[in-house]
Amino acid sequence: MKKNEQRKCQNCNELFPPDPRNINKQEYCRKPECRKASKAASQKKWLTKLENQGYFSGPDNVERVQKWRKKNPGYSRRKKPSIALQDHLPLQPAENKEDIFIQSSYALQDHLTVQPAVIIGLISSFIGSTLQDDIARTLLRMEQFGQEVLLFLPQNKGDKHDCKRTGSEK
């Protein structure tokens, strides 16, 4: 067979260039469905041989498997260690210690500053994502909203239902 010659796939009947290393034996193209068909045909051909028909059964094979299971107890029950796809968010030191003191005077803030993992978990479940970028963006938005609430900043949009400032705050 020449180097530039094409061959017809046994599965999809399309022409394909065979791999140069296997040019005389390749009967299937590289498409995933054709590779599956090639594997199925190969297995069927192997199982039709007389010497292979009882390969996976019989007392010899049963004994071999039993010996292996004794050497490897609990193999099928072992859990593989999970590999984290991201690092944990590092704790960020506070720049303004006066703000921390003011915040820590409230019972809720006391509890939350002690348990930042609870906040991260809550935000993660609230937004439905565990990506650090998504959590950081949400934290930034929540911080801005919190500052607006605490400082009673007027809204740019709205109507008669907006927060009103009292006369002494003007």
Rank of each mutant, 00 (worst) to 15 (best):
F152E: 13
Q26T: 07
Y55Q: 11
K2F: 10
V118M: 09
Q92D: 11
G58M: 07
K79H: 00
K39D: 04
N4K: 04
P59C: 05
Q103T: 01
S38T: 08
K79W: 00
F152Q: 15
N61V: 13
L47G: 08
D19Q: 05
R21P: 02
G146N: 01
P17A: 06
G128V: 03
L140P: 01
Y55M: 10
S168M: 04
R69F: 02
I83K: 13
P90H: 04
K44D: 05
A136N: 05
S38E: 14
Q66P: 05
Y55V: 02
S38M: 13
S57T: 12
P20A: 14
A84I: 04
Y106R: 12
V149Y: 04
S125K: 06
C34Y: 04
Y106H: 10
R78P: 07
D87V: 14
S38A: 14
A84W: 00
L91C: 06
E98K: 02
L50T: 09
R141M: 01
V114T: 13
Q103W: 05
C9N: 09
K160G: 08
L47C: 09
P20L: 12
C163E: 09
R141K: 15
E169F: 03
R21E: 08
R7F: 14
G146L: 03
L85M: 05
R165W: 02
R165D: 06
A107I: 05
K97Q: 07
C12S: 06
Q144C: 10
Y75G: 11
I135Y: 06
R141W: 01
Q132L: 11
F126K: 15
G58R: 01
L139P: 03
S125Q: 04
N72P: 02
E51S: 12
L85F: 07
L150T: 08
N24Q: 05
D110M: 12
R141H: 07
C34G: 07
D110S: 12
N52E: 12
E143M: 04
R64N: 14
G58T: 08
G58Y: 11
P116T: 07
M142T: 03
I123G: 05
Q10K: 15
R77Q: 15
S57C: 06
S104Y: 13
N72G: 10
Q43C: 05
Q115E: 10
L47F: 10
Q103L: 11
D87R: 15
A136G: 03
P154V: 00
L89Q: 14
Q132N: 15
V65L: 12
P154S: 07
D159G: 07
R69G: 00
Y75V: 11
S168Y: 02
N4L: 08
E98D: 11
L108M: 08
F56P: 00
F145N: 02
L139S: 10
R77H: 14
L112E: 01
R165V: 08
G128F: 09
R21G: 01
M142Q: 06
V65I: 12
K25W: 02
